[in-house]
Design a protein around this nucleic acid. Structure first.
Lengths: 353, 353
DNA sequence: CATAGTACCGTAAACGTTTACGGTAGCCGT
DNA sequence: ACGGCTACCGTAAACGTTTACGGTACTATG
């Protein structure tokens, strides 16, 4: 062991220790072909022994890449309306893929006070990430065009109107709408209410449109007064139920499109002595609470971890450095949801409905 | 405008545009004293005009600092019991402070499959962040010693047994335990159950210990069979209720220390025809659902955004470059929770209890 | 033996910043 | 007129990597 200049740092230290050049060390570490297998072995060994880890700043500076993938999300959950474990679970899946490629996932948290596009602009300007995953996609989302123009790899969780040809994955709201409507109609329901978020998130449009179509296929119309908008949280669900109960001509069934509104919805019904599954049919989205409501909520459930995996693979398939690993990744796809049968939609009407 | 070499990039481009040296540009941008106020103005102006943003890799490489603060958390909520909404709110507060100092917050997501210490080791070796916030602190948490040895600024959310002298903030579980026990005893309860997470998270020990003390102060003992362990989620709450109901000598009150278990707990009670507030007193932690349970849960609520602010300030007060901004930041402190009165603890017993 | 080819390795430039150092010009006081 | 001070600015080195390029030694081929 060379004692002479042990104060050297980084790759130079390692090179000195092995008495070879830093170029060779780098090549050995990065799996380049031009290096003897025996020396490579020695380098690898010495690297773990000395605990050498390449400095990311140096590497990034040199090759203009950071090995970081950013997952952009908004803080302040009233905006997204996802359940409490939604992102955690998705992250888990995303990370499972990234870790195979030495990529690090970081959550980019856009504060509720800042404009998402401004935030994204800053992130990009700083060259923070090699690729991006966007959530809370808006119907018209300027972020998409922004990234596309700059050739920055990205995938969105959620469709928009402006993403033609751009990679996205989305939940299968159409499938949910179709299946739920069919199910309710089959049970004799004719007057069916639906919900949607209050803001411009695209899923609202998609969901309501498909509900309308599905009803039309049965010769039914979607009454405009039965489309309830609300903040996608418990209070919103409570409000929806109050509004619904106040109607002259109440619906006999309702579809709740957000995860978190069911609890508030149930509560308002309960206060009015109206019981899901007996007095009104309710179908919602899965959340950890769904099974513990009375009665258990019939809902559509999503495999979140798998969704995360698909998101990661889709993104990587658009990145030149990784695309050969994922030749057949989904680029535009909706992610299926499975029906979890509860008792909240047990109400069956006869033909007179 | 110099057309000659517009293909230059970064600071050089800016310097060329202004016909001054890159050194001066850098000094102007970074608020150094040795620069004419007039030129500084021109530089700043040109910078926004050309949309110049300093490259982070270059800067990091030079000054060995990244301007990034990492917030480490575990994905997979079965572990921490804290979900998206908890962290989002805390992040919002943290970010409010950091943005004043051009610091970026990134969430470091340790997958549920990886050992947190290993993960942290990688993060540190890569020189990813200038400082760290640790969550899900274990009773014996090797990460603390690891960071302390390397003189890496950090603060933990949650105490441990091994953090003597290290900065931490924690929720005031003692205060909650004390207030809740006092409240219940004042209402005549003598046989009070408590819960705790199933794993080695420190809060379990702290909470139960203080409950014991608080009871002792009233001349009461904490029956060991009334300490319920569970996963910190809805299913755990359900299980606890089932176990509780199966006891020969049921408690008349219970304290739920985790946020998300109340829903499951309520459900199991409901199935058995036992109503909170009438047949058993229940006190829990605030969650978005708490108010929409029947009856509304009496719970302890936390100002999460303020907690985030405090966490950020505490961390910065330990970092040489920022400490002068936060001379009086809290270094070790518990964060108070406020009581939100519901009806779930309305049950009052007479002296015969 | 000369040449070409191969396998491996060293050298040095480059990435975009920050900053220590030195230099110039103007000004003031003697 | 001169030295010293101030205010400002330019130069160049340094941070830790990766990688194009060239070089050496050896082998194979003619």
């Amino acid at each position: 062991m060379k004692e002479e200049a042990l104060r050297m740092k980084g790759i130079r230290r390692l090179a000195q220790h092995l008495d070879i050049s830093i170029g060779t060390v780098s090549r050995a570490l990065n799996g380049r072909p031009d290096v003897n297998e025996e020396t490579r072995r020695r380098v690898l060994e010495a690297a773990t022994e000395l605990g050498y880890v390449p400095n990311q700043s140096g590497r990034s500076l040199r090759q203009g890449t950071t090995n970081i993938i950013g997952f952009m999300m908004q803080t302040g959950t009233e905006i997204t309306g996802q359940g409490d474990t939604f992102f955690m679970s998705v992250f888990d899946g995303v990370q499972a893929v990234f870790s195979r490629h030495q990529l690090d996932l970081v959550a980019l948290l856009c504060s509720s006070e800042e404009d998402p596009s401004d935030y994204l602009r800053r992130v990009v300007a700083r060259g923070f990430a090699d690729g991006l995953i966007l959530s809370a996609t808006q119907r018209h989302d300027p972020r998409i065009e922004f990234l596309a123009e700059r050739n920055i790899p990205f995938v969105t969780l959620g469709r928009s109107l402006t993403d033609a040809g751009r990679p996205w994955l989305d939940l299968d709201f159409e499938g949910m709408a179709q299946a739920a409507i069919d199910r309710l109609v089959a049970r004799g329901h004719r007057r069916i209410a639906v919900t949607r978020p209050h803001d411009d998130v695209n899923l609202g449009y998609i969901f309501v449109d498909r509900c309308r179509e599905a009803l039309a296929a049965h010769g039914l119309a979607l009454d405009e007064e039965l489309i309830f908008r609300s903040t996608p949280n418990e209070a919103g669900g409570y409000q929806i139920a109050r509004d619904l109960l106040a109607l002259e001509d109440r619906p006999t069934a309702i579809l709740l499109v957000n995860e978190t509104i069911a609890v508030g919805f149930y509560q308002a019904l309960s206060e009015a002595g109206v019981r899901p599954g007996r007095d009104i049919a309710v179908i919602g989205r899965y959340s950890p609470q769904a099974h513990f409501l009375s009665p258990p909520l019939t809902c559509f459930r999503l495999k979140l971890r798998e969704l995360g995996i698909a998101l990661a693979e889709t993104l990587l398939s658009t990145m030149p450095a990784f695309k050969h690993h994922y030749p057949q990744a989904l680029v535009n796809a909706v992610w299926p949801m499975e029906l979890v049968e509860g008792e909240s939609d047990a109400l069956t009407l006869d033909a007179a409905g």
